[in-house]
């Protein structure tokens, strides 16, 4: 099903349109990906990047474009995005595991070191992960940024913590 019918993006599609960092780039260090592929009038990600690695331009409805070479993976853009659509991926520090940093705006009880289920873009539990970092800055204005470590093969898929449906 297409994104517009299901609401679920795929890594393949992001790669196809050139919005996904290369394996090589992810091996070099953390890097941001804007999973924002629909023209909407929005640009806070662009102004949030201290390294000017995200460009949208004059017309704020253009898609954000990350210059992988400039991106340091600092993560400032994650909580700045109104669409909660920016993630920082890292496949550089191990051959077995990598990490995904994502925005999180729910109440939580987990702590650094906890093992939790990891969910893909459709909410399906695809593997387990270890919480590596939980960041709440004043600038992030109540959007928590969680870094989850998962088997390296799942870095491209994991985008949240798995949530058991309440019914």
């Amino acid at each position: 099903m297409s994104l517009s019918a299901s609401g679920v993006l795929t890594t393949e599609y992001l790669k196809e349109i050139g919005k996904y960092p290369s394996e090589e780039r992810m091996k070099q260090g953390p890097v941001a990906v804007c999973e924002c592929v629909e023209k909407i009038p929005c640009n806070p990600c662009e102004s949030s990047c201290p390294f000017h690695a995200i460009t949208i331009g004059e017309n704020i409805s253009e898609l954000p474009c990350v210059t992988w070479g400039k991106c340091t993976g600092c993560g400032s853009c994650i909580p700045a995005c109104s669409g909660l659509a920016v993630f920082v991926l890292n496949k550089s520090y191990s051959d077995e595991v990598g990490s995904v940093a994502f925005p999180y705006e729910y109440n939580y009880t987990f702590q650094v070191g906890d093992v939790v289920g990891a969910a893909d873009r459709s909410g399906k539990r695809v593997c387990d992960g270890v919480i590596k970092r939980i960041v709440n800055t004043k600038k992030a204005d109540r959007t928590t940024v969680v870094t989850l470590e998962v088997p390296i093969a799942f870095v491209d898929e994991v985008r949240s913590i798995y949530r058991e449906r309440r019914s």
């Binding site: 994104l3 517009s4 609401g7 679920v8 669409g83 909660l84 969910a119 459709s122 949240s160």
Partner: peptide, 21 residues
């Protein structure tokens, strides 16, 4: 198709919310 912004929909789908288009 989903009428609102895809990014808003994706926030929900990754929490496992079904969208019946």
């Amino acid at each position: 198709k989903i009428n609102g912004y895809a990014v808003h929909a994706s926030k929900l789908t990754r929490e496992g919310i079904p969208i019946y288009t």
